[in-house]
Amino acid sequence: MTTAAPAKGNTKGKAKARSTTKSSATGVGPLLRGWRERRRVSQLELALRADSSARHISFIETGRARPSEELVLRLADHLDVPVRDRNSLLLAAGYAPRFRETPLEDPAMGTLREGLDQLLTGYEPYPALVVDAAYDVVAANRGITMLTDGVADEVLAAPLNAMRLTLHPRGLAPRIRNLREWRGHLLHQMERQIALQRSDALRAVYDEVAAYPVADPGVDAFDAGTDVPYFALPLRIEHDGQILSFISSISTFNTPMDVTVAELAIETLLPADPATVKYLQTHMG
């Protein structure tokens, strides 16, 4: 992508295997049962949603019946199975994968890359970045680059990971004034994602960042009270002696038809107070 990310090193052309569910030698039944139980949906409820019968769902799960390709996709849709894992279900049922996985650097992704670049650049001077399913940064704007001033090279080394960057003791963590609250928010966010999908890569990131030591920040400006009426938990981070406050918003693509696109997320940091707006406009205007 043309937008400069703060990572040091070149990750272009890097093929990342994020297989989260492997095809089972026993067929699609155990995989479907696993997703159904993960979503806490009964066979009857799933059958009603997918216009099938509880008996047929039971036969599929026990291997006594083979579902059609259409039914596999319909069941996956009602179970909110991630796109990558829908391919695994199809393979386990004996069908070809339905969804491509096109590298972001592929020429076919040119329009997508240009669109993301325009979005990130247009959001400046406010920070914004694009991450993949394991929070590796694939693009970022100058607002993010500004915030990473002073971060250790080892943290910025490719592939730059947003969670590692934020919570590492040599990353942004020492400058986050409400670190305990923000760390708790990020860990809970990853826990929810891990509960909804089977991702070894995300679990590895979670285990790493959850183990980082958390220094006692002392009295935090956020905890001490403020006259700013925050409408969501802010990220309060110090930059050159100024406390900046941001509200995080994450966007994904609707009805993705490609695994790579399905796993992209755009995070924008909205200034949470007038002082932050003025500071960014002055330093990046």
Score class of each variant (00 low, 15 high):
Thr252Pro: 00
Leu73Gln: 08
Phe231Tyr: 07
Leu147Gly: 08
Gly241Thr: 08
Leu270Gly: 04
Ala162Asp: 07
Pro217Phe: 09
Asp136Ile: 00
Thr145Leu: 12
Thr226Asn: 08
Ala262Leu: 07
His188Gln: 14
Glu267Val: 02
Leu90Cys: 01
Met1Arg: 01
Thr226Asp: 10
Gln43Ala: 14
Leu280Asn: 12
Val228Gln: 11
Ala139Pro: 01
Val214Ile: 10
Ala134Ser: 15
Val81Ser: 03
Arg55Gly: 01
Leu172Lys: 02
Ala15Tyr: 08
Thr20Ser: 14
Arg74Thr: 15
Ser52Arg: 02
Ala140Trp: 07
Asp136Leu: 02
Leu172Asp: 13
Ala7Lys: 00
Leu79Ser: 02
Arg38His: 04
Ser245Ile: 09
Pro159His: 05
His185Gly: 00
Leu112Asn: 10
Leu31Asp: 02
Val228His: 15
Ala4Val: 12
Met190Val: 04
Met163Val: 05
Ala108Lys: 09
Thr166Ala: 07
Glu238His: 08
Leu104Gln: 10
Lys8Trp: 01
Ile60Lys: 12
Pro6Tyr: 05
Asp51Pro: 01
Val209Ile: 15
Leu244Glu: 05
Val131Leu: 02
Met190Ile: 03
Ala93Phe: 00
Val72Arg: 12
Glu70Pro: 07
Leu165Thr: 04
Ala275Thr: 12
Pro103Phe: 03
Thr252Trp: 06
Gln118Arg: 14
Pro30Lys: 11
Gly143Lys: 03
Gly184Cys: 11
Leu116Pro: 13
Leu112Val: 15
Ile176His: 01
Gly150Ile: 11
Asp77Ser: 15
Arg177Pro: 00
Ala96Glu: 15
Asp258Phe: 04
Arg49Phe: 06
Asp117Arg: 13
Ala204Tyr: 00
Leu147Phe: 10
Asp240Lys: 09
Gly225Lys: 10
Asp216Phe: 01
Gly63Asp: 06
Val277Asn: 01
His283Ser: 14
Pro6Val: 04
Ser19Met: 12
Ala93Trp: 04
Gly122Cys: 03
Ala195Phe: 01
Ala93Gly: 06
Pro256Asn: 05
Ser245His: 08
Leu31Gly: 05
Arg113Trp: 05
Ala140Asp: 09
Asp51Glu: 13
Asp77Asn: 12
Leu186Thr: 05
Arg183Ile: 08
Asp240Asn: 13
Tyr212Arg: 08
Ala140Pro: 07
Thr20Glu: 13
Gly285Thr: 11
Ala54His: 07
Gly184Ile: 11
Ser199Ala: 08
Glu208Gly: 10
Arg113Cys: 14
Leu187Ala: 15
Gly94Cys: 06
Gln118Ala: 13
Thr282Ala: 15
Leu46Gly: 10
Gly94Val: 06
Val259Trp: 01
Thr102Leu: 00
Val214His: 04
Ser42Thr: 15
Ser24Pro: 00
Leu46Cys: 12
Ile194Tyr: 00
Thr226Ile: 04
Ala76Phe: 03
Thr145Gly: 14
Tyr206His: 15
Thr255Ser: 14
Pro127Glu: 07
Ser245Cys: 10
Leu129Asp: 05
Gly171Tyr: 10
Arg39Phe: 05
Ile247Gly: 07
Lys8Asn: 10
Leu104Ser: 14
Gly13Ile: 11
Met190His: 01
Ser42Leu: 07
Gly241Ile: 13
Arg170Ala: 13
Ala162Tyr: 14
Leu90Trp: 14
Leu48His: 02
Arg175Met: 09
Gln43Arg: 15
Ile57Arg: 06
Asp85Cys: 05
Ala54Gln: 14
Glu61Met: 15
Leu91Arg: 13
Ala224Trp: 06
Ala195Leu: 04
Gly171Gln: 12
Val151Lys: 05
Ala140Phe: 02
Leu165Asp: 00
Leu202Gln: 11
